[in-house]
C-alpha cells in the first residue's frame, strides 16, 4: 500500500515537473490537476461511457472465453483437428485487430456488436492456446491407468484432462482479462458514439486533452479492477478443485 502511494506520488510529480520544466501547453499535456478536474466535471458522462465499455468487456470476455475453451477441448480430442486448426489460428493472430475493426463495423453496424466481436477476437486466442497446452500435458501415468481401466475418450477428457488443465485455462483467462478492454476500445474508436473509446476520440478531436486523459485513467482503473476480480474468482474456483 505504502509503495503504491509512493509510486503514484512519484509519477504525478514527474508529470507536473515535465510540464513546468518543458513549458508544455495544456492542450498537449494537461497537468494532473486539470485531468482531475475534467474527471470531476464530466463524471456523469464518463460513467455512462464507462458503463457501455464495461458491458462490452464483460460480454466479449465471457463469450470469447467460452469459445476459446470449447475450441481447445475440441482440438484436445483430435490431433487431426489440431493439425488443421493450429496454423489457421496462428494466421488469424497475424491480422492486426486494428485493421479488422472498420470491417467489423461495416458488417455489424455501430451498436455494441462489433465491439463485442473485437473483444471476442482478442480474448479467445490466449484462452484457447493456454487451455489446449494444459489439455495436452495430462500426466502419462494417469492416462495409462485410464486406458487400462477401460475409460472412454469423453470420460478421460471430463475426469482427467480438463481438471488437470484448469491451471492452464486460468492462465489464459487472466491474460485475456487484461487484453479484453483493448478490444472493446479499438471497436469504439472506429465507430459509434458510445463507450470510453468513442469519448476519447471525440475529446481528442476537440483538443480536450484533459478529458482524454481522464477517460484513459478510468479505462486503466477499470481494466485493473476487472483483471483482479477475474484472478480472485479463478483462485477461489481452483482452490475448491484443489489444483
Amino acid at each position: 500500500m505504502k509503495t503504491a502511494a509512493l509510486l503514484i506520488v512519484t509519477v504525478l510529480s514527474l508529470w507536473q515537473g515535465i510540464i513546468w520544466l518543458a513549458g508544455m501547453p495544456a492542450f498537449l499535456l494537461p497537468p494532473p490537476m486539470a485531468v482531475a478536474e475534467a474527471l470531476w466535471i464530466n463524471r456523469a458522462e464518463i460513467a455512462r461511457h464507462a458503463g457501455f465499455t464495461l458491458a462490452e468487456v464483460v460480454l466479449g470476455f465471457t463469450l470469447g472465453s467460452a469459445l476459446g475453451a470449447a475450441l481447445a477441448v475440441a482440438m484436445g480430442f483430435s490431433q487431426k483437428l489440431t493439425g488443421v486448426l493450429r496454423p489457421i489460428l496462428t494466421f488469424s493472430q497475424t491480422i492486426p485487430v486494428f485493421a479488422l475493426a472498420p470491417i467489423l463495423t461495416l458488417w455489424l453496424g455501430f451498436g455494441m456488436a462489433p465491439k463485442i466481436a473485437m473483444t471476442v477476437l482478442i480474448v479467445f486466442f490466449p484462452v484457447a492456446s493456454a487451455f489446449l497446452d494444459g489439455l495436452m500435458r495430462t500426466p502419462q501415468p494417469a492416462l495409462d491407468l485410464a486406458q487400462v481401466m477401460g475409460a472412454g475418450r469423453i470420460r478421460i477428457m471430463r475426469h482427467l484432462r480438463i481438471p488437470a488443465a484448469l491451471p492452464g485455462l486460468a492462465t489464459g483467462l487472466r491474460l485475456a482479462a487484461v487484453y479484453a478492454p483493448i478490444g472493446a476500445v479499438i471497436g469504439e474508436w472506429v465507430g459509434g458514439a458510445r463507450g470510453l473509446g468513442a469519448l476519447m476520440i471525440h475529446a481528442n478531436g476537440r483538443m480536450k486533452t484533459d478529458l482524454v486523459f481522464a477517460a484513459l485513467l478510468v479505462l486503466s482503473v477499470m481494466t485493473v479492477v476487472f483483471a483482479r476480480l477475474v484472478a480472485i474468482a479463478l483462485r477461489r474456483l481452483l482452490g475448491r478443485y484443489g489444483v
Binding site: M149, R155, H159
Partner: peptide, 18 residues
C-alpha cells in the same frame, strides 16, 4: 489424481467407466 481424496482415487476406475 491430485484433486481427488483417497476414496476418490480408489474409485477412479468406476468414475472413468461411468
Amino acid at each position: 489424481i491430485p484433486w481427488l481424496d483417497v476414496t476418490g482415487n480408489v474409485t477412479l476406475g468406476a468414475r472413468l467407466r461411468g
